[in-house]
């Protein structure tokens, strides 16, 4: 953990994230060249609402409307859903309205987080 925190800022483009996790960009493809610096993995929206970080990728297995709402309120633009979670039409619509980027990958929360950490994304805490 210490080692990773001290690394110089490694950033990843959304399309690089997608490629490394066999993920599909299901919403906001026009933002795929944008860059993220940090990752945060949680299924607990209360935890997500406490983060004060920009250019953050939220990695979660919690796929419902409140996940999108939480991202909207917390100014999080990028969400990665793991384990190929179903993204409902309602979720998609709300994400589009807020110009969010949604990705979906087949990997588990642990594996997706591990790979992105290994690639150099920084943790929030």
């Amino acid at each position: 953990m210490k080692k990773n925190e001290n690394r110089p800022g490694v950033t990843m483009k959304i399309n690089e994230v997608a490629k490394s996790l066999e993920a599909k960009i299901v919403c906001g493809e026009h933002r795929q060249e944008e860059v993220i610096e940090k990752g945060f993995s949680s299924d607990l929206m209360s935890d997500v609402l406490r983060i004060d970080t920009e250019h953050l990728l939220l990695i979660t297995g919690m796929a419902n409307l409140q996940t999108i709402r939480t991202a909207e309120m917390a100014d999080i633009s990028y969400i990665l859903f793991v384990r190929n979670k179903q993204i409902s039409d309602e979720m998609l619509e709300l994400a589009k309205e807020n110009d969010l980027v949604l990705l979906r990958c087949p990997y588990s929360l642990f594996r997706a987080s591990g790979l992105l950490f290994e690639a150099g994304l920084k943790p929030v805490y």
Binding site: D43, L44, M45, S46, D47, V48, L49, R50, M62, N64, Q66, T67, T70
Partner: peptide
Amino acid sequence: QMGFGAGMGLPNIKR
């Protein structure tokens, strides 16, 4: 199950 109810809401409002 919606990702809430962890007992963090009111403290977070105060914060």
